[in-house]
Write a protein that binds this DNA or RNA. Sequence first.
DNA 1: ACGATGTATGTAAAGGTTTACATAAGGCTT
DNA 2: AAGCCTTATGTAAACCTTTACATACATCGT
Lengths: 343, 343
Amino acid sequence: MSNSTPATIEDVARIAEVSIATVSRAIHMPEKVANSTRLKVNQAIAITGYTTNAMARSLRLGRSNMILVVAPDIGDPNFSNILVGLENEARAHGYGILIGHTQNDAQRGLEYLKFFNSNQAAGLILFTGILPFGHQTMTARLPPSVGVFEPVFNGGIPYVGVDDTEGARKAVDLLLAEGHRKIAFIGDSRTRLAYTRRRMGYDAGLDAAGIPPDTRIVLEGDGTIESGRHAVEQLFMRDTLPTAFMCVNDQTAIGVMIGLGARGYDIPRDFSVTGFDDVPQAVFISPPLTTIRQPRTAIGKQAMALLLELLSDGRPTETEILLRPDLVVRNSVSAPSRNWLKR
Amino acid sequence: MSNSTPATIEDVARIAEVSIATVSRAIHMPEKVANSTRLKVNQAIAITGYTTNAMARSLRLGRSNMILVVAPDIGDPNFSNILVGLENEARAHGYGILIGHTQNDAQRGLEYLKFFNSNQAAGLILFTGILPFGHQTMTARLPPSVGVFEPVFNGGIPYVGVDDTEGARKAVDLLLAEGHRKIAFIGDSRTRLAYTRRRMGYDAGLDAAGIPPDTRIVLEGDGTIESGRHAVEQLFMRDTLPTAFMCVNDQTAIGVMIGLGARGYDIPRDFSVTGFDDVPQAVFISPPLTTIRQPRTAIGKQAMALLLELLSDGRPTETEILLRPDLVVRNSVSAPSRNWLKR
DNA sequence: ACGATGTATGTAAAGGTTTACATAAGGCTT
DNA sequence: AAGCCTTATGTAAACCTTTACATACATCGT
């Protein structure tokens, strides 16, 4: 019972008075074994407290029951909820997860490949939009992989994300409904698909409202708080002020709010601001940010489900799964102020 | 080269024209092998791109190179930075980390034991103050373990945390220096060691300032935002108002601030508030929270270092490592307002 | 010149599992 | 009752390492 060394399949076999092959079958292919023997085996397992040695199993099978999750930054507020979804789904199917963070360092990413060479992981979940490994070199023998949030590279890797266009459309429609006509769009890098798609939602919303695009109030940045702040300064410099700021993500929106606050303006009285992501901070900042929620736990769950499917079937059923983002109305949006309307 | 199956030690041996034993030795005990052969082996490894199969190695050695990290909630804002520290240190020593979250469910915690039975993990890092497994049953065959933040149970498991007493003392001293004399302490559960210790710092600070303890303004809660809010209501009901709230953690402090805000008070004009932890939100709330920082990355690093030591030596050098917490001054503390001083 | 000592390498077993193949027994068909 | 199919179980090989033990050879002291 409380032996020093854990019970092996042989211990079970001895007690159940069957061969080890039968024990293995009783566990993994119960229908192939007679009811009476299955019972004996189960009893023996209960007595010994046997758990199958995952190492030996993986060695024999040539694949492990672990999934490697690689993210550029574990501390990213978007990360942890995704992880919950990933982990729950994995566990439900007998898989565990392994976490690696690359800190945006390709070299470190590369080191994670050893988990696959050495059979320590069977599949890969990628958070970064790029492969964390040297590109061409490895694409050939890449393990079954699924991207989260963003499509990966061009490697034909399926991914699970959110319908960015629809989400952006919801944000812009809210602002339009409040009466805003001059709505700035503060983006991040044009190379990111999320930017392109959210921008599409913005453009479409404006177009549907009959408002001609005004490129003077469409800015690019890098998605950080600092970049949101900078965007505000730029607009004040140019004297092309909008009445509302629609931001590509919450970080940028927070930056915008800080920038506006520093200039003495009140939100939402003087300007309205929307974000995208609904990071945990969004509810704590002042005023609480109206934003678009990414269903993170659901994304994680779907991504893992897709990967598990990939692992068993070999081919993905879908190459892109987009979940529906929700508008979360808080306190950073109101009708444009009289003053600004006059402009 | 780009074979479908990864190279094994035998491939290397064949190319280097030595036995597999020599290859293994060349890798793990290089000094035991002649220079010339070591060179040949290294070349062969380079040619084949060989990586040792961790499964086979673990099976043979009877231990793995993975560390299981169990936390009640991966989404906890305290968690991710710790993880960075843990992971960096682990990787530096050839270990990887495995993450599990129990969601405060003992049953789920129990399931993680299989990682040890099956040799999938060599050691354990515990975030929860309690063992996530059935208590008495398992203590005997518990793997090498280290606690983080809090001592674990009574199982003689070493842990790495922060000097709570010193941190609390810094907070209370700041409030005293600002001129506060009536300082409330909002705690969480008395069963938590962190509570006891932070309370000790509070008591000591008051004592040093010659202020007699006033139990009417020392409250208990459960460490949540809601509980902070509730504490404010209680104090208003009883009409025993302090001029400052010293909170056992940031969540409670945020709750206190929300509660005070809801009653129309301004912080820090009407009341001062301090927290403990310096969670990421602390800087985003309004006003930004003055709090005590836990050096999270450092804690993680130390905890992992301690565990690794445990794994090799068998016995821990220290049973408790406390790091120094820092006061982070932001905007939630000022001198008590005239009005309140009169009381 | 011989045994002793030391160094470098090879041989083979062991670690726990899964599974192809072999065997045995029972039930059908004719 | 003979042959055949089906079902249940056992035997043994394979997965890839590490390492105790054996072997071979060179070096050294006497």
